[in-house]
Computed example of a mutant assay.
Amino acid sequence: MQEKNNDHNLKPFVSIILPCYNEEAILQTSVNNIIKYLESKSHKYRWEILIIDDGSKDKTGEMADEFNSQYDNIRVIHHPVNLNLGRALQTGFRHAKGDIFIVLDIDLSYSIEYIEQMADKLSETYSDIVIASPYMKGGQVIAVPFLRKIMSLWVNKFMRLAAQDKYHTYTGMVRAYRKSFIQTLNLKTKDYEINPEILYKAMILRARIVEIPAHLDWTEQNKYKGKRTSSIRILRGFFSGIMSAFIFRPYIFFLALGTLLMILSMYELIWLLYDTLSTLSQSHGLGSTFSSSLALQFKKNPQSFMVGGITFIAAIQVLSLGFLSLQSKRYFEELFHLGTSFKKI
């Protein structure tokens, strides 16, 4: 009997975190499917399900409580009001008891089979984070509305361009986390931006992050069109994603814009210098000087002087902001690293 208990305790303990807001249409079916799957893997994992009811206005909370009353390893935490995804995930990270945390979307647009794949990959590769990525080679996006698909794809490409460490999916929520790592992160974001925030701060700490190819399939979700009120607004998600990209390396945007403005100003000013020197070389009067030729050019093309001068000043200002943001970023990363080290003690 003692040996059996020891074997049980040696199994990885997996916590499934399910943030929910107004999901009465799909909650019961999705949770039942997750339970059935986890029970089939009980020889391999110990498990719990943690449902975060984020201030739902429908029957989501009541339905979740019914699961809690039926299963000892299903727990429910209720937010009194809607605090958004960021706060829901932070609540889940604080209260989950497992060694491995796996965050799923309640609509199961990523197959529940990724629970095992992500948990195994986390253990096999000694990773801190495993990302289910539909945008890497081998991944696929199925039945997602065209506009949403294109916006999501290009937001992630933009983040890949901005980030120092290159991955394919920065905005996806479906991930596995090592408890000892994720609980040390000091997270601040309240909404969808928490997913890139986690990756950004993980990069600062030199965490090991791995992606696995995944299929994002909205076939079932599309059946509930009009019955769910929790879906992300497309434009809001797009612009929040674009803004989130700046957290990775904000200075490159200032430096890129400053360099472009400098090239434009140099083009204008060099042509003015060329015309001035040409006018000077063609003048044979004793009174011809560089300053008089420059004055003549200003009289002929005052707009060129204005555009070139203003663009040059703007370039210097933007480049200065770039170097200041680089310095600020380094200060922040050092302080964050130091703060995280103290939190672990």
Rank of each mutant, 00 (worst) to 15 (best):
A207F: 00
M306V: 15
I198S: 06
K4E: 12
Q303N: 14
S152K: 08
R148H: 15
Q2I: 11
S281Y: 10
N222I: 08
C20D: 01
Y21D: 05
H337L: 12
L326M: 08
A96L: 09
R228W: 14
S278M: 08
G98H: 10
F332T: 09
K344S: 12
T311E: 13
Y71Q: 14
A132R: 01
T229S: 11
W218F: 12
L264T: 14
P145W: 08
K329P: 06
K166Y: 12
K149C: 06
I204F: 09
R94E: 02
E268C: 11
D128Q: 07
F342G: 13
S230Y: 02
I35Q: 01
H215N: 06
Y224L: 05
H168D: 08
F67D: 10
A25H: 02
K36I: 07
V31S: 14
T125Y: 14
F254V: 01
E124C: 09
K329Y: 13
S304M: 00
Q327T: 15
F248A: 06
I115V: 02
D128W: 03
G139F: 02
K59V: 04
G339N: 05
L104A: 11
T91E: 06
L277R: 07
S133W: 09
R160P: 01
Q303Y: 13
Q28M: 10
G258L: 00
L272M: 03
L260D: 00
L335R: 03
L235W: 14
L147M: 13
S56W: 06
D99W: 02
R175N: 06
N82S: 12
L104H: 13
R148C: 09
G237L: 07
N68A: 10
R160H: 14
Q282P: 01
M136L: 11
W47Q: 07
M159G: 02
Y267P: 00
